[in-house]
Design a protein around this nucleic acid. Sequence first.
DNA 1: TTCAACTTGTAACGAATGTTACACTTTTTT
DNA 2: AAAAAAGTGTAACATTCGTTACAAGTTGAA
Lengths: 221, 221
Amino acid sequence: MDTDALFSCPLCCHILPDERTIFIQDAKPKTKFFKKGALVAVQGDPVDALYVLTKGSVKTEMISEAGNSLPIETITAPQLLAPAFLLAEEHFFPVDVIAIEDSEVVLISKSMIIKQLSCNEAFLHAYMKLNSNRMHFITERLKLFSIKTIKGKLAQYMLERSKNRHFVMDKNQTQLAEYFGVARPSLSRSLSEMIDDKVIILNNKDGEILNLDALKEYMLQ
Amino acid sequence: MDTDALFSCPLCCHILPDERTIFIQDAKPKTKFFKKGALVAVQGDPVDALYVLTKGSVKTEMISEAGNSLPIETITAPQLLAPAFLLAEEHFFPVDVIAIEDSEVVLISKSMIIKQLSCNEAFLHAYMKLNSNRMHFITERLKLFSIKTIKGKLAQYMLERSKNRHFVMDKNQTQLAEYFGVARPSLSRSLSEMIDDKVIILNNKDGEILNLDALKEYMLQ
DNA sequence: TTCAACTTGTAACGAATGTTACACTTTTTT
DNA sequence: AAAAAAGTGTAACATTCGTTACAAGTTGAA
């Protein structure tokens, strides 16, 4: 078990060095290993422990089963998995979690976390801030989905990362199409049309907004 | 100010009766009134205080501006507005909040909430559970959006509230179309096709699942 | 360099959904 | 009971997007 990684995750880093040995003794954390491509958890699995990703990286996605899948995010160690659901009444994984490289996950029991929350104020604040930030993240994801047209999604994406009418595409078209949940050729077509209409120009990953009003209009429909 | 409502909200109900007078003295909560239809908050407004809806009801929606709007939920007093964002680094309203009847909102400063969180364990747990539950709610909303076809959304909606192949439609078609973010005639068409295909039957609000496998298949595409 | 793998552009076509309009039914109000 | 309002079904047509296929460009490794 990678205790260094465990205690550098954004939550457990607030357990003081002196207390870490005792914490490990009390918590008796379980360690699980996952090969690249393995399922760490599936939608509906109960979240009965805090899942700390201590090595590797995973991706989360919704609705897999067989048909479509919508990627939500990729998570790189050291980080927590589904921390908000540990204390929820519906304490189940809302997504599938899949290892995208060989990974290690440390499980810490719910009761141990609750104990730590009540006796360690820094831990508590970190936990709450973590959940708040995740809420923000997932809300942004929802906002993207509430925009129905591909051009609208692109506009939102570009405006979100623009500064002085300049922006950088941090994903290639294949990844972006997957992120938006649309077909790649459709994305390419929409992008081409936005360029044809002189709303933006693109040089490789670098983009420039030529017509800000027109770009914003895309989102309103 | 409706203090009864304030102290019956799911968070402040954990402030003990003895401490309520002092709490009010210290917090000096501000009260705001909103007429039906008024904007309580818009996307991007800073969340610098805890918003407690003490009277009336509001609806929240994304991307309004002028074009489309996606309703997220309706909230009835006594309840909190955007509690998760009070402690987030990005402490801004993620949605527009609109009064759907004459309403009263009580504002309690962030510092007062933080103080209460650290000295009142029940308050703390209520706050965390509240955020966890909201996370679950918003994740379910996202799941609905990750399903692209209307029939798929309908299938998810029906399966979610079915018991022994029986379900009840708790919204009329107009409301459901708005909830899904689709056009009302399109929803009506999809519903008709599902009935024609003998996957479900509908008697007013009561539905019966005739072909469970077919219904589930709708979601996988 | 040369080849393979990845990435992008694009075209033709079909499927799903949106838009608009109107008739009809049900519910609510007067 | 009559009138008004709300809800529903449906048709014709437009639009957007998905699917499939292939060509061309780019990158990186052998």
